[in-house]
Amino acid sequence: MPHVVTENCVSCRFTDCVTVCPVACFHGDGDRLYIDPEACIDCGACIPICPVHAIKEDFDLDEDEADWAAVNAEKAAELPVIRAKQAPLPTAESRRGELGFQ
């Protein structure tokens, strides 16, 4: 079961997760990250390092998050791989606070 980046990543794009990924399965755009389900080996290393708890195993998605699996697959196929840590978005810290993860 691949892992999925959920809505919590929107307006954050913390990239701590890419530093622990052994297969470079993360892709990104100007607002968030996505996981390529074909490349993900389900190691789970990314889950505890995400500061906004945006990554879940696909079978742990809540009903209202289920669509994120398809979004990750679609977007990962068209976006570049993110292989190194980057600066989070300027809105990341405020979004983190909104999500209750200060």
Rank of each mutant, 00 (worst) to 15 (best):
D67P: 00
K85V: 05
C43N: 03
E93W: 12
D31Y: 08
C40A: 03
V20N: 12
I41C: 08
V23L: 04
H53K: 15
I49G: 05
G28M: 00
C12F: 00
C17K: 06
C46H: 03
P37N: 03
E65L: 09
K85D: 02
D62G: 12
I55A: 07
I55L: 04
A69C: 11
A70M: 12
P48M: 05
A73G: 09
A87Y: 04
Q102N: 13
E63R: 09
D67E: 13
T19Y: 07
K56D: 09
C46S: 04
Q86L: 15
E74G: 10
E63K: 11
A92F: 12
R32L: 08
F26G: 05
E93H: 11
F101A: 00
R96Q: 14
L33I: 03
I82Y: 04
C25Q: 09
H27S: 07
F101G: 04
P90D: 06
G97E: 14
D16G: 01
P37M: 02
E78G: 14
A54L: 09
A39I: 15
E38N: 13
R95N: 00
A77C: 09
T15I: 07
G44W: 01
N72L: 12
C25L: 08
A92E: 11
L79C: 12
A54N: 06
A39L: 08
I47C: 06
I49C: 04
R13E: 10
C46Y: 10
E74A: 14
K75I: 00
P48T: 01
H27E: 04
C40T: 05
A87N: 12
A73R: 15
A69R: 14
A73M: 07
C25D: 02
V23E: 11
E78C: 10
